[in-house]
Design a protein around this nucleic acid. Structure first.
Lengths: 291, 291
DNA sequence: AGGGCTTGTAGTAATTTTATGAAAATGATG
DNA sequence: CATCATTTTCATAAAATTACTACAAGCCCT
């Protein structure tokens, strides 16, 4: 019973953040005042916001219209929705003179924001397909190089509880060897942020050529994505900002969580289905139930 | 900086629904008009809503005040937020018959919720101390066993860019050997969710006895926490629920992100501090400053 | 110096809120 | 059970706040 309407991708706050550079002096002052404390902005009157931004009221009004609102009140409503939609604390880069409390908060919030974005972008159908493949796997291998090595390792731990042989490899040579040696029924999960590492793409293709199912957790429309049987698309906001840490790893890990949970659940359902089949096979030997 | 309130569990819409019976005739008409099409209500003016509910404008206003809003505009903002809060199943456990879309969403949301909780519980002072130790380290070792192995591995990758020797170990034997061989100036970061693994505690004590600084990322008041030089306390809501995956790993990873970022930042700042020290050492050779 | 873009001033329009009193409901009492 | 008193409910209208428009001054860039 999902079906929460209202999820047109508004995200006014992000919009403001993005268009910050394309605004003229005064309107940028307005934008900055809003970003400084978005939730407070929803409580301001146009006069109060104008004062906070040190501009005139009509400037605020023009600013609102610039973001395709009919006026200030409409803008406030949209802003309020944008805040509640999850992505509350967008932006705010880490500054060299931030205190520990400040940048710790910023990292946490940006991670949260990224996760929420990933949540909205997640494709359940791809996940379902991936889970189906994983359930039927004779053997599962997780491939992750560099930064994704830890994700692969984590995946190995998570999938260990299922009674399937699971391994993870962070080494191109080993990966290639495994890919070369695999066959139909094997599943290989390739984790890569960019999806553009030549070696990785090559290995994925090799594995597929040998009949293995290749599940990719990577960037949409990347060469690696093309090479996979099924792709769970992940687009993280990798800030080029030096201080900003990789959010993609966190998202990848959470995707692994979802896959593992999916396998657990489906196995249960499968099991129930199995029981049902047995029961039904017994039916002919019994009398039909009363009524 | 931090301090973003706003996430009191509003859910105005639910509130209205609940209090529907306790309202008098006219106010109920208002409530019904709003519930008939909540998102339309956010676009109405007080006059329009009054007409839609077939009551007078002050009635609408009184209604708004009844739901602890300062007035109609404030009410509309709250309503907009309530609608947009696309958080239908926060805190809900995963059910065996959830669709993929449903449980994927639940996992994401619960992870987000956990991160946010961790954010509020973070102790900046402990983080600052840990960062100080890490900067001064001659050598850093990350220890994580079982599920925390991937966190340790990730940490190794992150700290690689600093010019300090970094290693990670997921094996008790290797950890013990490293702990036995370390000396003053070495920093060991022990990552453990429970903080109650005997082996890990023992290793931490051994390392400290040899003069190493031991930073713990673990549960507060745990035996491991006692054994550390400084502890970054992490309390994740580890749902005992079978289907719920470990949120602690994600939090641990984010803590690592914070530490790595802190080291990057402080290196810059440290340089300034260094300069200051040199300056101060020169003070005695000068006359006291005027005033 | 003049055209185009930006921004503020001042006045106007719209909207919300308060004040006030009338109508309805409740309840007590003869 | 009728009647009056009291309270609650509600709408009209006026006041106050808030948002919008027109226009003019200012700035920047050839």
């Amino acid at each position: 019973m999902a079906a929460n309407q209202t999820h047109r991708d508004d995200n006014l706050l992000e919009d403001i953040q993005e268009r910050l550079d394309n605004l003229n002096k005064s309107e940028r002052k307005v934008a900055e005042a809003i970003l400084r404390d978005p939730s407070a902005a929803t409580r301001y009157s146009i006069a109060a916001l104008a004062r906070a931004a040190d501009v005139s009221e009509p400037t605020v009004n023009r600013f609102c219209r610039g973001f395709s609102a009919t006026g200030f009140p409409d803008f406030k409503i949209r802003l309020a929705q944008s805040i509640a939609t999850g992505t509350p604390y967008v932006g705010q880069n880490i500054e060299p003179d931030d205190t520990v409390a400040e940048f710790a908060d910023k990292i946490m919030l940006s991670t949260i924001a990224n996760l929420d974005k990933a949540r909205q972008a997640l494709n359940p159908k791809a996940l379902a397909t991936a889970i189906d493949y994983l359930i039927q796997a004779k053997q599962i291998n997780f491939f992750g190089m560099g930064g994704s090595a830890s994700v692969a390792l984590d995946a190995q731990h998570k999938f260990f509880r299922f009674n399937i042989p699971v391994m993870s490899y962070d080494d191109a040579l080993m990966q290639r060897m495994v890919a070369a040696g695999c066959s139909t029924g094997d599943v290989i999960v390739v984790i890569s942020y960019t999806g553009r590492t030549l070696e990785t793409i090559d290995i994925a293709q090799l594995a597929r050529a040998n009949g293995a199912t290749v599940i990719g957790i990577t960037m949409p429309d990347s060469p690696l994505a093309e090479a996979c049987t099924v792709v769970v698309e992940v687009t993280a906001n990798e800030d080029t900002e030096v201080y900003m840490p990789m959010a993609s790893r966190i998202i990848h890990l959470t995707v692994i969580d979802i896959l593992a949970t999916g396998v657990t659940l489906k196995r249960g359902a499968d099991f129930l289905g199995h029981l049902k089949k047995i029961k039904e096979s017994l039916k002919p030997t019994r009398l039909p139930p009363p009524q």
